[in-house]
Design a protein around this nucleic acid. Structure first.
Length: 114
RNA sequence: CAACCAGGUCGGACAGCCGCGGACGCAUGCCGAAAGGCAGCGGAUGAGGAAAGUCCGGGCUCCACAGGGCAGGGAUAACGGGUAACGCCCGCCGAGAGCAAUCUCAGGACAAGUGCAACAGAGAGAUACCGCGCCGUUCCCCUUAAUGGGGAAUAGGAGAUUCCACAUACAGUGUGAGCUUUGCCGUCAGCGGCUAAGUGAUCGAUUGUAUGUGCGAAUCGACGACGUAAGGGUGAAAAGGUGGGGUAAGAGCCCACCCGGCCCAUGGUAACAUGGGUUUUACGCUGUAAACUCUAUCCCGGAGCAACGCCGUGGAGGGACACAAGACUGACCCGGUCGUCCCGAGGAGGCGGCUUGACCCCGUGAGCAAUUGCGGGGCUAGAUAGAUGGCUGUCAAGACAGAACCCGGCUUACAGACCCGGUUGUAUC
RNA sequence: AGAGGAUUUGUGUAACGGUAGCACACCGGACUCUGACUCCGUUUGCGGGGGUUCGAAUCCCUCAUCCUCUG
């Protein structure tokens, strides 16, 4: 990935949870500008959604959506994506559609800059 | 071939494209005097049989601690072995299930003490309700229509049937005074005698019936005392079982056999098995300890890799130097803040711990086996918001499920495939 | 990672190893013109599986779910 890394610091997660997120049936997305030139993306899957292997698979699929669509995003943001229970069973293209529409709502995509 | 039992192995495969962690390597770029750092490129390799639950046993690390014993707490429980250790494993014994292969069992001690055993049932850890057997059931006083009350004898209340004896009444039979009638005789009558019939007091005998009496008898019943525990069909469980003798009735009271306990012998390391004995006043004992408890063995200081060690920008603290100039605050003065160097603790964060280990594979020796000796070979995840994913095609439709310091077990979840062995049944040769 | 606790009817809760109660709710009936209140009655249960015991909600093991605490 060209300009993205994973978000690891717990206090940044906490800071992002206090912002106003956007949500639909599958996902919840929090975003906030950072002063870097890169995006930092974190994924949260709660213990309520299933056992460990189910949570792992869900997290991988969400990360894969970001990786395949990274070119559409604008750099310089911290992003946290929270999975909801529908996301566990959702097919991959539904997940992609949900992710991109939420990102558009939050103003993270390149096309919004024009 | 079918059904079943036991053990072991695997647990999506192949191909393409795009991706992730990453030991290690690089004659690559930048920084640096160097060590090295950052980036780039290549890249061995990269989840499980349960990684899970966290139920046991250890290793490892830190803190605390002079030694020993008792008490206390916890775990385990036939016996023998294995192991670093275990509550695990193997073998074996006993009990239970199954036609069998085989499987299951917290499987010490209620013969030390305490507790509990609902309902039902006479009785639940001890009884005597019914039953069975023997013996006994008498007398006095007051009172009533029946009855009831009191006292004495230890205590209690005494009924039915039959028989016997006696008494009375009635009836039959017998005897038979007397009376009546018939006939005969003496004379017609009266009267008398004889005969026959009828009636019939009385009498004692006898039979039957009824009533009463009896220190009467028998049987049954009631009550009381004693003996007994065979029977009672209630219960999950009822004082070892079966048969015989015995007895007033009965009983391990006695005998025979069986079961169990105890003792001895033999076999076995042992649990245990087999055989024998159980004599004297003297073995017969309910179940429950996953009830308290007792016995034996073992363990017991605490915490857990977020342990622990190292580095540690900033900020706060302490010390040293300089206290001159300047800046800020302020209308001005006084006053306050701002400097450089060093120190140890330490929050965020980073690094180590971190994978070579009671390890795995092969061969071989010991052992029934668990396991273990020897030899050879191998290195097989090491992440740290946590690496295995997405898409496509073919086959298949297919589970349970994701390491976080590491081992040995246990428990739980699990579609299917394969291998080896065994039992039973059927068929064929 | 390490501790502690709970699970009983729709809800909240009791119980010595021997018939599982109580309150509210629901339903039915009475009262009322109707509803509420009140009275009477019925139904609905021991988280799942195994074991010990004659007998388990209770004792033991195991699994599941939930809650709380510490770092």
């Amino acid at each position: 990935m060209k300009f993205s890394s994973s978000l690891k610091l717990n206090h940044i997660f906490q800071r992002l949870y206090h912002t106003k997120g956007v949500a639909d049936g599958h996902l919840v997305l929090y975003a906030r500008k950072n002063r870097l030139n890169v995006n930092r993306v974190g994924v949260t899957v709660s213990k309520k959604l299933g056992k460990a292997h189910i949570r792992n698979r869900t997290r991988r699929r969400i990360r894969e959506v970001y990786r395949l669509n990274e070119a559409q995003f604008r750099p310089g943001w911290d992003i946290v994506v929270v999975a909801r229970s529908k996301a566990v069973e959702a097919p991959f293209d539904k997940l992609t559609e949900s992710y991109l529409s939420l990102a558009r709502k939050a103003g993270l995509l390149q096309e919004d800059a024009r």
